[in-house]
Amino acid sequence: MSLESAVRGCARMGDERSKEFIYKTCYGYVRAITLRYVKNEFDAEELTNESFIRAFNKIGTFNSEELGDRFEKSFRAWLARIAANISIDFLRAQKQFVALDDVSELEIEHRSVTVAGDLHVEDIMKLLLQLPEIQRTIFNLYEVEGYSHEEVSVLLEIPESTSRTYLTRAKKKLRELYLASTNITAGF
């Protein structure tokens, strides 16, 4: 069974075998997305399962016409949006984010750091988990999921300038954490 045939079977008749195939095939992918937002393994598991429940309920809305060889990539992106939105809803329900005062673009420093070629995904994930929740969430939405600052501000119900500020802080903190983990000193 292919992912495409499973999605079509699930959309047409709610086939349980198709749902099981989709779940097993995409579980790790969706779990990785939810783990980028929450630190707690139990919460990530719950969010992952909730993502699949919502996906199965809305699978008929996934537009799969004329995708051809892009089907799997498109379906995974659709699933990723669902998982990210569920994770954001969960975080929003946990607590309200504190809005910052507007910060001008001139106050935001831009620094570059050369990254070593031996930085692995696991290392990046460990660094991301050390960020404060709001910074990690905005970093994930903007840098990983591809949302704009305007979209982030709507999703998190914060000013656009706050999104920019927290992203800048997240990048700065990640640089500091990375440099500390590699014992590199920078001229900050």
Rank of each mutant, 00 (worst) to 15 (best):
Tyr142Ser: 14
Arg70Phe: 12
Ala180Asn: 11
Ile124Ser: 04
Val98Pro: 11
Asp43Asn: 08
Asp43Arg: 03
His110Thr: 08
Thr168Gly: 14
His120Ser: 11
Asp69Arg: 15
Tyr142Val: 12
Glu109Ala: 13
Lys39Cys: 09
Gln130Glu: 14
Gly68Asp: 09
Ile59Trp: 01
Leu3Glu: 10
Thr48Arg: 00
Val98Ile: 13
Ser153Tyr: 02
Thr168Asp: 13
Leu177Cys: 04
Phe75Tyr: 09
Gly187Lys: 14
Ser74Ala: 15
Leu79Tyr: 00
Lys171Tyr: 05
Lys58Trp: 07
Tyr27Cys: 09
Leu119Arg: 07
Arg175Pro: 00
Asp123Ala: 11
Thr25Arg: 15
Ile184Trp: 02
Asn49Gly: 04
Ile33Arg: 00
Ser87Gln: 04
Glu4Ala: 09
Lys95Val: 01
Arg70Pro: 05
Leu106His: 06
Ser163Val: 02
Met125Asp: 13
Tyr142Leu: 09
Leu128Asn: 03
Asn183Ile: 10
Cys26Asp: 03
Arg36Gln: 10
Phe52Gly: 04
Gly28Thr: 07
Leu167Asn: 06
Ser18Trp: 03
Arg111Ala: 11
Ser64Ile: 05
Arg169Ser: 02
Glu122His: 07
Tyr37Gly: 03
Val38Arg: 00
Ile82His: 00
Leu3Ala: 08
Tyr147Val: 03
Arg81Cys: 08
Glu16Trp: 06
Phe62Lys: 02
Trp78Tyr: 13
Glu160Tyr: 02
Glu157Asp: 15
Leu141Ser: 03
Thr114Leu: 14
Leu155Gln: 12
Ala84Val: 14
Glu157Lys: 15
Ser181Asn: 13
Tyr142Asp: 12
Gln135Pro: 00
Thr61Asp: 11
Leu67Ile: 06
Lys172Ile: 03
Glu65Gln: 15
Ser161Val: 12
Leu179Asp: 00
Leu79Asn: 00
His110Lys: 15
Leu119Asp: 04
Ser163Asn: 07
Leu91Glu: 01
Lys172Leu: 12
Leu177Phe: 03
Lys73Ala: 14
Ser5Ile: 09
Asp118Trp: 06
Leu127Met: 15
Leu131Glu: 01
Asp89Gly: 15
Glu50Arg: 06
Pro159Cys: 05
Glu50His: 06
Phe75Cys: 07
Val115Gly: 00
Gln130Leu: 15
Asn85Ala: 06
Cys10Gly: 02
Leu155Val: 06
Phe75Val: 02
Ala77Arg: 06
Ser112Pro: 00
Glu157Ile: 03
Leu174Pro: 00
Leu129Pro: 03
Asn63Gly: 05
Met13Thr: 14
Asp118Ile: 08
Phe21Thr: 06
Thr185Ala: 14
Ala32Lys: 13
Ala11Leu: 05
Ser74Phe: 11
Leu3Asn: 05
Ile124Asn: 05
Glu16Asn: 08
Glu133Trp: 04
Leu179His: 01
Arg36Phe: 03
Phe42Arg: 12
Glu176Leu: 15
Leu131Asp: 01
Asn85Tyr: 07
Ala32Tyr: 11
